[in-house]
Design a protein around this nucleic acid. Structure first.
Length: 704
DNA sequence: GCGGACTCTCTTTTT
DNA sequence: GAGAGTCCGC
């Protein structure tokens, strides 16, 4: 190993970056090049070398995990819990500012964050109330469009008119924002945008925010979207002490508005910026890096660079073509067992897939074979129904609940409040002009009318339990769930399911007790719950020796001895949706593969299946374009003869990839075959007539 | 208002 | 193929 030095040492490039002076710094850090290490040392240098007070330094990350990692590495390096350096995600730091200044935007300081589910429900309600059918404007399209505006830093007032099927999208955006405000909620994008609005439009607050920090460092800078970028530009406009670290080859959040240009053009945007390049990779074997470089160099529009290996040799990455997704899972298990036998712990292995759904067959087989595994991602802890219900009760009890919380539980357990009744309740609440908990106080005092009368017992119960909340460790969680009848209503769902849900609620209880014990207020706890969407922080089996399974997106920043990348197929990687987005979409998919490959330290297995079932339909995917053409010296291809049982890739002489002639559409190539017998369908790409999906029985195809 | 049966859609990635 | 959404009878 060249000039890496000892554990506390840095190579020349790392050291130069860590010890750079003031002003904008761009650190282009390839995968595995000691990026976090360099940031941590730079912070150490700012404190010890340049005499900057720790609490005047801000380190911004994209995930909670990265923030936690940074904190722990900092406290190892400089001790004293990192000495007060502020680190967190864009969202968490924004929320801190907003807790302080939100009233300037017309929000109470106790506003809450809305999660994706509630967000979607709100949009649906808006469309329904305006009699816009979903086939005219799809709720998720509207939501997506609104997010897009917010990522671009545009408020409804600033967004140019945009009509969709004769519907004014901007108007709906404005209504959505009003509704959020009325419910005292902000969505995730608002957290960033609203801080930017404070910085833009409120001079005094802007001055206060800008003078809060003297140095700002940003990790994974390639994933910033325009509004985050403006956030940073504003925050650093006075001192210009902005250090960004990133790798344009790992930009994988274009769909969330990230713009690679921020990193590609950093030196133009920040004049006088110093560029540092970290290209030595300390993580992976030369064999793995050879593949990584071969894959990524196909992309145009990137900082030209090649990862240099410091670990020579290594086993050549393998590509296994399997029959179907279960065969794929079996092959993966075989490799896991082999790696285990050669001394790698399960915890040092990971399966990284493109879409979460791919975990299903893996889970099944791993469970049957008693191979321990851990799924990261999927339905988050705080997204579970019972957790959301329990938190709604708890928030109302602790006076930080709002109308959405009330709406959520007003008929749980059943109180005879159906859709109509709930509408009335919400109308009465809105008409009262009161906050939800003040209004509930009125109900408890006997001032309930109409549908709200059905809520009076709940209101009284809340008022009564509030007297004793201080005497409980869990802020009254269990008492309210018990006495409101919620727990009993869970039991009605069936024993096994109820037990699982109760177990989750107990985990929530533990977590609340822990947090309150740390001195957090109920509002603090709600923030934590809102920002900590991933469930992995909640689970206590972190120490268990288990194979990790997660999406490629989640894997960014992590590394494992042995990595499996399943589903390296057209339609999955690159994903079907990206194919419609053209070159830019495909380039991002390629980067995703690159991210996956560079997670591996020693062993890497890529797999694809000839047959894959998606939502009940059978597909016959082609191998991914990203690896199809790769030379044998970077990727070892282990093919096996297709099994006829698993892969009916041929019917009536029509085979995938074969040429056919149709009486009216002419010549074409078979892309896929689905189903069997009379129901069999064939997808053909015709030379002139485009791609068609036909019933094989009636298509009268001739084999060409 | 409620529950059951039926239909329909929707399937990328996350703070 | 699953989960959400809708419709209908009670």
């Amino acid at each position: 190993m060249p000039d890496r030095g000892n554990e506390h040492g840095l190579n020349a490039a790392q050291q130069q970056a860590a010890q750079a002076g003031d002003g904008p710094q761009l650190i282009l850090a390839g995968a595995g090049s000691g990026k976090t290490r360099t940031i941590v040392h730079r912070i150490g240098h700012l404190i010890a070398g340049a005499g900057v007070a720790p609490h005047r330094i801000l380190a911004v990350t994209f995930t909670n995990k990265a923030a936690a990692e940074l904190k722990s590495r900092l406290s190892t390096l400089i001790g004293d819990d990192g000495g007060g350096v502020v680190s967190g995600t864009f969202h968490a730091i924004s929320l801190r500012f907003l807790r302080r200044y939100a009233d300037a935007l017309g929000f109470p300081r106790s506003f809450q964050v809305i999660d994706a589910d509630d967000q979607k429900a709100l949009v649906k309600r808006i469309l329904k109330s305006r009699n816009i059918p979903t086939d005219r404007l799809h709720p998720s399209y509207l939501l997506h469009w609104i997010e897009h505006c917010k990522h671009a830093g545009l408020t409804p007032q600033e967004t140019p008119a945009h009509d969709w099927n004769g519907i004014s999208m901007v108007e709906l955006y404005a209504v959505y924002q009003q509704e959020l405000k009325q419910h005292e909620r902000m969505d995730f994008s608002d957290l960033i945008l609203n801080v930017v609005l404070l910085l833009r439009d409120h001079r005094d607050i802007a001055v206060a925010i800008k003078s809060r920090f003297d140095h700002v460092l940003v990790d994974e800078f390639q994933d910033t979207n325009p509004v985050q970028h403006e956030w940073l530009m504003q925050l650093c406009s006075e001192h210009r002490n902005l250090t960004v670290v990133g790798d344009d080859d790992q930009s994988i959040y274009g769909w969330r508005g990230a713009d690679v240009r921020h990193i590609l053009e950093f030196e133009r945007i920040w004049r006088g910026a110093t560029l540092h390049r970290l290209q030595q990779n300390y993580r992976s074997t030369a064999a793995i890096l050879k593949l990584a470089n071969a894959v990524i160099c196909e992309n145009a529009d990137r900082h030209d660079k090649v990862l240099e290996a410091t670990i020579a040799g290594g086993e050549m990455p393998r590509w296994k073509v399997c029959n179907d997704e279960y065969d794929e899972a079996r092959q993966i298990m075989r490799h896991v067992e082999r790696w285990r036998a050669s001394g790698h712990a399960h915890a040092e292995m990971a399966v990284l897939y493109r879409s979460n759904r791919q975990s299903l067959p893996l889970e099944q087989l791993f469970r049957e074979s008693n191979i321990p595994y851990r799924i990261i991602g999927g339905v988050g802890f705080f997204e579970r129904m019972e957790i959301k219900d329990a938190l709604a009760f708890w928030a109302l009890l602790n006076r930080c609940g709002d109308s959405l919380h009330l709406m959520r539980i007003c008929n749980k357990p059943k109180r005879g409040l159906g859709a109509k009744g709930q509408e009335q309740v919400m109308a009465q609440l809105a008409a009262s002009g009161l906050r939800a908990d003040a209004w509930l106080d009125l109900l408890a005092a006997g001032q309930a009318e109409g549908a709200s009368r059905k809520l009076a017992p709940l209101a009284s119960l809340l008022a009564e339990l509030r007297n004793d909340v201080g005497a409980t460790d869990d802020g009254g969680l269990m008492p309210i769930l018990q006495q409101s009848g919620y727990l009993d209503s869970l039991k009605a769902m069936g024993e096994i399911e109820a037990a699982a849900r109760l177990e989750n609620i107990r985990t929530l209880q533990d977590y609340i007790e822990l947090s309150l014990g740390q001195g957090l207020t109920p509002v603090d706890f709600m923030d934590r719950a809102a920002l900590l969407q991933g469930s992995e922080e909640m689970r206590d089996d972190q120490t268990q020796d288990a194979v990790s399974m997660m999406s490629l997106h989640r894997a960014k920043g992590l590394e494992f001895d042995c990595v499996v990348l399943p589903g390296i197929e057209e339609g999955l990687l690159p994903h079907q949706r990206s194919l419609d987005e053209g070159e830019a979409g495909i380039a991002e998919e390629r980067r995703l593969l690159y991210v996956g490959i560079t997670r591996a330290r020693r062993h890497l297995l890529l797999t694809s299946a000839r047959v894959r079932r998606f939502y009940g339909e059978i597909h016959y995917p082609q191998p991914s374009r990203f690896i199809k053409q790769l030379p044998d010296e970077v990727l070892h291809r282990l093919d096996q003869a297709p099994s006829q049982i698993d892969a009916p890739a041929q019917q009536h002489g029509v085979a995938i990839g074969g040429n056919v002639v149709h009486p009216s559409f002419g010549e074409g190539v078979v892309l896929a075959l689905e189903g069997g017998g009379d129901a069999a369908r064939v997808t053909v790409q015709f030379r002139r007539a485009g791609t068609k999906r036909l019933m094989l029985k009636y298509a009268a195809l001739q084999i060409a």
